[in-house]
Structure formats: structure tokens, C-alpha cells
Amino acid sequence: MFEARLVQGSLLKKVLDAIKELLNEASWDCADSGIQLQAMDNSHVSLVSVNLRAEGFDKYRCDRNLIMGMDLTSMSKILKCAANDDIITMKAQDNADTVTFIFESPSQEKVSDYEMKLMNLDQDHLGIPETDYACVIKLPSGEFARICRDLSNFGESIVIACSKEGVKFSAAGDIGTGNIKLAQTSSVDKEEEAVIIEMQEPVTLTFACRYLNMFTKATPLSPQVSLSMSPDVPLVVEYSIGDIGQIQYFLAPKIDD
């Protein structure tokens, strides 16, 4: 059987909020090492990869590898029934066609359980090559969400240009243009407020705002976000999930005609 108990249940709630706009359904691959999810959005422009390590769970048992196909809208509705401070347990028998979610209040005075049907999804998995990125930018997640939201007013694409001076986000459209430049922070007292740029070579790429704004739904998961870029390869936007895992969004670039 499969059983995973997460004391910080709010993390799972936030993970669903972070993927439910991009994906309608996806499979959770459960193994000894933990739980993984990988799925592309319907237009095959973006891909979400979630990794939750077994050690991050207060109790984790996975007798046999299990693939649980789920409708994420339904799963999100169920997780909405959990309070932010609830302990969340996911349970499934080995060849089950349902999964059970158990929510325990901290005082154990209230215990809820919800059972959901599983789906057979034959989604093609993509092999994501290990890449040594030309630029890796770490910045406050709220800052990145703000930049994407503000520049979306100007156009449907955002140009991200990373150089040794810093990183510039630009957009242009009918009403005009917008440019936001972030310099590498010299010294900040709080790591979470730092802008850190590791650059092997300068990179400039163009991305659709619509997807970037969907990725920033993961902002509540982590105070920091990292952007990894290399010429003409997908952008990686990564948020940590507490200290138990991470969520990575891959976005194909737009190529100038």
C-alpha cells in the first residue's frame, strides 16, 4: 500500500494552487524515494515537474511503485477542504482505483477523509536533459511575480536579458513599452531579498506572459525563485517546496521571426 503523511499539509495545498491553472489532470508517480509529477500543459508550451522527497513526510510508505492519475480540479477541491494547519495524509492500496485524503486538525479533534477516483492517464513523459545554464538568477519570488504582472500590461511577451550588469525584463505593445532592471544586490542582510546572478555568458530570451503569470501562482511556496536560462532552450522557473522538494516550470522560448 501507499501512505504519505505530511504534517505541514499547507505545502500540498499550495502545490495544487501552483499547478491547477496550468494542468487539468496529471499522474503522481509514487516510489520509495518520494512522489514526482511531470506534465505538460495542453499546448505543449510549458511543463511542470514536482518532486516531493520521502524524507519530507512524517510517515512515508510505498510498498510498490504506484502511478496515481488524478483530475487536478477535483484534487484541488478536496484539498480546499483541509485547513491550513491540518496534517494531510494520502493513502492508496496497491492496485487501487481510488485514493483517500485524510485531514487531521492539530488537536486531532477533527479528522476528515475524502476518497477520490483515480484516472488512467497515458501522458508521454519528456526526458529533460541535465543542462549547465548560461545564466541563473535568484530573486525574491514576490518581486518576480510583480514584474510579470506589471509588464503583462504592455504586451503578451516579456524579454529577459541577463548580462553582467544585471537582469532586464522588457515588454512592448500598443500602449508603449516597459523596462525593469534588477542589479545584483551587493550585500543584503536577508538572503531572501537578494538578487543573485551567476552568468557564464549573456542571454536574452522572449517568453509569453501568460505562462509566466501562471508559474507565479507558486509564489506562496517559497520566498525565493530561480530563473535558469541558456540561448534557445526552455526557461526553468524553480520554487522550493518548504524543505521537502521543489517545483520546476519549463517554458519554451518565443523565437523572433
Binding site: 508550451v45 519528456l126 536533459p129 519554451a252 518565443k254
Partner: peptide
Amino acid sequence: AATQTDLRHFFKAR
């Protein structure tokens, strides 16, 4: 204008 590319152009299905 810029043309959106498809992820499968970069990542091969396993």
C-alpha cells in the same frame, strides 16, 4: 512578432 516554440522541439519523449 515572435513565434512560440513547442517544448517537444527541445525535450524528447522518453
